[in-house]
Design a protein around this nucleic acid. Structure first.
Lengths: 110, 110
DNA sequence: CTCCTTCATCGTTAATCTACGATAAGCGAT
DNA sequence: ATCGCTTATCGTAGATTAACGATGAAGGAG
């Protein structure tokens, strides 16, 4: 099972809506991480090594980006023997989309 | 008139869709900048000094955040005598929302 | 048990970010 | 011409980020 918020990676302190959105935006504030997220969305589930193959980055760098995505909550990781399978946390992605919608449509209120 | 992309602040090199989204997300990857954007959306137009009053940050720090927002294209600045009036670039905000929608809804395709 | 694969983590370096005070530049008013 | 207001920029310090190679841990295969 995918664990939503492992205590080791996501301290899960309480954030304001603004802080939470900032965290998610920051996680997507690098082209490599957007590419990874896109890849995970099209592949649904993906082994870390497969992502490394696709990206022009060292394995350790990709692992670091994955860690940041995991810490933001946008991505979930599941250990499968020697491999680690990643997938997108749809709930978190929806949360991001909702928050972004609220922000972008704020002008229309009032 | 508000200038869309002053050559001095926005080099306007060609970016891929992923890079462009990353730039916009990075610009919103700090709570202070989200707060500023929100404030500009509710106030429509706003003098820099007014933003400084609202934020718990030094004037120079706010000015720096505004510069980052300007460079991303999300915010436009217009000099009015000794003051500078800021407003949100609705086109860019829509562009961000569209790109985010495409990203978040990618799962539904295929 | 020993290799091999897979991946996270460590250590490092260079770059960037964040925050601040201080300063400079531009403009209006006196 | 000078003063005061407003804002951008400079310089700086500390923290964080991004990239890499190297190492280590965990599990499967022989």
């Amino acid at each position: 099972m995918y664990i939503e918020s492992p205590a080791t990676t996501a301290p899960q302190t309480s954030h304001s809506e603004t802080e939470e959105l900032a965290i998610l935006c920051k996680a997507l504030g690098h082209p490599a991480r957007i590419t990874i997220l896109r890849h995970l969305l099209t592949e649904d589930r993906c082994i870390c090594g497969r992502i490394v193959e696709v990206m022009p980055l060292a394995q350790s760098t990709v692992s670091q980006h994955l860690k940041i995505l995991k810490e933001s909550g946008l991505v979930l990781g599941e250990v499968e023997g020697p491999k680690t399978c990643y997938c997108v946390n749809r709930n978190k992605l929806t949360e991001l989309f909702t928050a972004m919608s609220t922000l972008c449509r704020q002008e229309e209120e009032q």
